[in-house]
Design a protein around this nucleic acid. Structure first.
Lengths: 205, 205
DNA sequence: AGTTATATTAATTGCATAATTAAACTCTGA
DNA sequence: TCAGAGTTTAATTATGCAATTAATATAACT
């Protein structure tokens, strides 16, 4: 039984194209025909052929995009656990912003689409892409703010840094009327880190 | 010709209910039946009766929500134009966060839905609710960072403060698995202001 | 080259959902 | 009490699209 390998290429193309579309228009607003179109006018039947149905494709393309991204940019940004909190904070922010900027921000697009119109993958997306960031931030922020900070102060500080990371920059940029300026992820990551440092210092008082 | 006034109440109820639903599920994912349900099981035909069609209702309910909110919380937060930039920044942030938190965050919900799935009101929403904030922030930030700051530094600083304001807190809170903690808008506004001050100071150097 | 399983296509099915309308009915206010 | 605004019912209309099927093309292997 001959195993052809040209199918894998098609499958991957669908995963990629679908992820991109889903990130921009969300699950329900994306049709199989749309997906077929962006994958180079392939046939819609191939979606059923490779992924059984649209919902499965959605889940798989999200997981596909996520796995890739998190491997390249792990949560802790590869900072040693015993590094000073400032360095760990820098690494977390850096990894997070770069990860969210990957692939035309497919990852972050899906997340924001899920926030607006939840589907059945919401829980998974939420855990992996929002809750996890908050959790790691919480640890370093607590350390940096010191003993005297209340739980609420910690929460607020985490929320602020979190906000700067997850803001859908690329999406907002593509909106009509938006000046054509793109932010380099490296530079933005650096900026957010410094901004956060200053903010934390001000809060600590 | 007798002009009954019970109709106005129904109309307003539809506006309010629709705005709330649209902010949560977006335009296409909200059906007339949904709207009728949340308005106390009114009849779907009333939507056509009062607003001609769903699209008109969408636009009107957005404008309705926006007008109310901006009147109560103007862009500049009522700070005098000749006040020191710190005070103007504080007022802007305070007004913006409170405005976005109003009515269960209807305003901000519609904005984020539009970012994810744009409709024809996107331009209007974008101008009024995103571009305008950036514009006023830009002015005070430029003033606070001083002459030596580059345009990119200004842009990045504006983006960071902007992020902290527009983050869809209420939406994220309602997501599954989220700990039951709600942020008091006043306290959060205060925090964001102090955090921003610290951040700006760190950037300035 | 011939065979077979895999990959791809075209056309269709069939469902489901929902916006909108017209006509009937009811309530309010003068 | 009646005229017109408000409300309901029930049908209509529009459609949009996911999923299948059966037929065709192509790669791999002998």
């Amino acid at each position: 039984m001959p195993r052809r390998k040209d199918g894998e290429k098609t499958r991957d193309a669908i995963l990629e194209g679908a992820a991109w579309l889903f990130s921009r228009k969300g699950f329900t607003n994306t049709t199989n025909a749309d997906i077929a179109r962006v994958c180079g006018n392939i046939n819609t039947a191939l979606i059923s052929y490779y992924f059984c149905d649209k919902a499965t494709l959605y889940r798989e393309s999200w997981e596909f995009a996520y796995r890739d991204a998190i491997k390249k940019y792990p949560l802790d940004g590869n900072a040693p656990a015993d590094a000073p909190p400032e360095e760990r904070l820098r690494a977390i922010i850096h990894a997070d912003i770069l990860r969210r900027s990957e692939r035309d921000s497919t990852l972050n697009g899906i997340i924001h689409a899920e926030i607006s119109y939840p589907t059945e993958i919401l829980t998974d997306v939420y855990e992996k892409s929002l809750a996890s960031l908050r959790a790691v931030l919480r640890v370093v922020v607590a350390e940096m703010l010191g003993e005297r900070a209340t739980a609420e102060e910690q929460r607020l500080a985490v929320l602020s840094i979190f906000s700067m990371c997850i803001v859908p920059v690329e999406k907002i940029q593509t909106l009509e009327g938006m000046p054509q300026y793109t932010y380099d992820p490296e530079i933005r990551a650096r900026h957010v880190y410094e901004f956060a440092l200053g903010g934390l210092k001000a809060i600590k008082k």
